[in-house]
Computed example of a mutant assay.
Amino acid sequence: MRTFPDDLVRAQREWSATYRQLADRPGRTELRRRLYRLSAQSFFHPYWRQRRPSPAAWWELRELGRRAGDMNERPHR
């Protein structure tokens, strides 16, 4: 498992949370804009200048974001 910078992991976690919110409330412009901003923040992060972004690295980063969201989800009542 790779070690990613904290701010990159945080951006991915926010991306995953925003994506889930957008799925629940499609058409929300502010959520689409936030998702776009977070995508750019992750894609152009300085970490990727030092390392070649492989599909496996992206997958690991996305998994970190998803797992954090799964742990933070509350059961629906």
Score class of each variant (00 low, 15 high):
Tyr47Ile: 08
Leu64Arg: 13
Glu73His: 13
Thr18Val: 14
Pro26Thr: 13
Arg20Lys: 13
Trp59Thr: 12
Tyr47Glu: 04
Leu64Phe: 09
Pro53Glu: 00
Trp15Ser: 00
Ala40Phe: 02
Ala11Tyr: 01
Arg62Gln: 09
Arg28Phe: 10
Leu22Lys: 09
Ala57His: 04
His45Arg: 04
Arg13Gln: 12
Asp7Lys: 01
Ala68Trp: 02
Arg20Ala: 15
Ser42Tyr: 00
Gln50Ala: 10
Glu14Lys: 04
Pro75Ala: 11
His45Cys: 04
Met1Ser: 07
Ala57Asp: 04
Pro55Val: 02
Glu73Thr: 13
Thr18Ala: 11
Glu30Val: 08
Tyr36Lys: 09
Arg32Val: 14
Val9Met: 01
Leu22Ala: 14
Ala40Ser: 05
Tyr47Leu: 06
Met71Ser: 07
Pro46Arg: 06
Arg52Lys: 13
Arg74Ser: 15
Leu35Asn: 05
Pro26Glu: 12
Trp15Asn: 00
Leu64Asp: 08
Leu35Thr: 01
Pro5Thr: 02
Tyr47Phe: 15
Phe44Thr: 07
Arg52Ile: 14
Trp59Tyr: 09
Leu64Thr: 07
Arg49Gly: 09
Trp48Ala: 10
Asp70Thr: 11
Arg74Phe: 10
Arg67Ser: 13
Arg52Met: 14
Ala11Phe: 02
Arg32Trp: 08
Trp15Arg: 00
Arg34Tyr: 03
Tyr36Ile: 07
Thr29Ser: 08
Ala57Phe: 00
Gln41Cys: 10
Ala17Asn: 02
Arg77Ala: 14
Arg13Cys: 07
Arg37Ser: 03
Leu64Ile: 10
Gly27Gln: 10
Glu63Arg: 14
Gly69Ala: 12
Ala40Tyr: 03
Gln50Phe: 06
Glu63Gly: 08
Ala40Lys: 05
Trp58Ile: 06
Glu14Asp: 06
Arg74Val: 15
Thr3Cys: 06
Asp70Met: 15
Gln21Tyr: 10
Ala23Gln: 13
Ala68Cys: 06
Arg77Val: 12
Trp59Pro: 00
Arg25His: 12
Arg25Phe: 15
Arg10His: 08
Ala40His: 03
Leu38Lys: 00
Ala56Ile: 07
Gly69Asp: 03
Val9Lys: 00
Met1Arg: 07
Leu38Trp: 00
Phe43Glu: 07
